[in-house]
């Protein structure tokens, strides 16, 4: 089944249009990435898909249902989950409270204990710090918390916006190892990254977004072997 289908998305901030006819899709169980330079419109794309922004035109279909224009909280109810750029954990809540807040939705309540065990298993560090106020976490821990928080919501589609941003290289590979683990568990993933080599490694397919337009798409191997991508993104 197709988890997400985005057709001809046009998005503007006020009068300034930043996305032009953007189309892509994610199959259930698949891991897809969108790569592109800073300012290309990656965050705007994820914000529109997750209901924070409303498109000028275009259509967003989630597991067969037209969800264009629904508010973020309703899309979350349906199983969309976004790990936002810059993590956006709740700074004044403890680690555990951050995770509990993610089980606010009725459909997540019964599975909370089980999911909590799962994310503590995935990120033992968070278990050690469960009663610590989240604003005191390091960047890497905060990113793990943001991913864990999303996993508590039983996502049918997990979207991650530049999880490597601001992290030391050793932590980047740690975060990507956990994304790989989620992928192996069968979680459907849409990843947005500037860190192209690692992003391609954990994805089945990739799209290249430049200046608000999709300029290239294909399997991760195809995209990785593209001449332009090799020059501009992989530095080969």
């Amino acid at each position: 089944m197709r988890a997400l289908e985005v057709q001809n998305l046009n998005v503007a901030y006020g009068k300034v249009q930043v996305l032009w006819d953007v189309s892509f899709h994610v199959e259930e169980g698949e891991s897809v990435c969108i790569i592109g330079p800073n300012g290309a419109g990656k965050t705007t794309t994820l914000h529109t898909v997750s209901g924070i922004l409303t498109p000028l035109s275009g259509r967003i279909t989630f597991y067969g249902e037209d969800v264009t224009g629904l508010p973020a909280w309703e899309l979350a109810e349906r199983g969309m989950s976004l790990v936002p750029e810059g993590r956006r954990i709740f700074p004044n809540l403890t680690v555990l409270e951050n995770l509990m807040a993610a089980s606010y939705m009725r459909r997540c309540r019964d599975s909370f204990e089980e999911n909590l065990e799962m994310v503590f298993d995935l990120f033992p560090r968070l278990k050690e710090r469960r009663d610590q106020v989240a604003r005191t976490l390091s960047g890497g821990e905060a990113q793990m918390l943001a991913i864990a928080r999303a996993m508590i919501t039983n996502p049918r589609l997990l979207m991650l916006d530049e999880p490597s941003m601001g992290l030391a290289p050793i932590l980047v590979s740690k975060v990507f190892r956990s994304i790989q683990r989620l992928r192996e568990r069968g979680v459907t993933i849409l990843l947005v990254e500037q860190h192209v080599p690692v992003a391609l490694r954990v994805s089945d397919r990739a799209y290249v977004l430049e200046n608000g337009r999709i300029v290239l798409s294909g399997t991760s191997e195809e995209v990785a072997s593209n001449k332009k991508v090799r020059e501009h993104y992989l530095g080969i």
Partner: peptide, 21 residues
């Protein structure tokens, strides 16, 4: 109460968790 505090901390992040802010 927890949902209120989460909204107070970051309303956008709260809405992404299904909290009707």
């Amino acid at each position: 109460g927890l949902a209120l505090r989460a909204t107070s901390d970051d309303m956008q992040a709260a809405s992404l968790l299904g909290i009707n802010v």
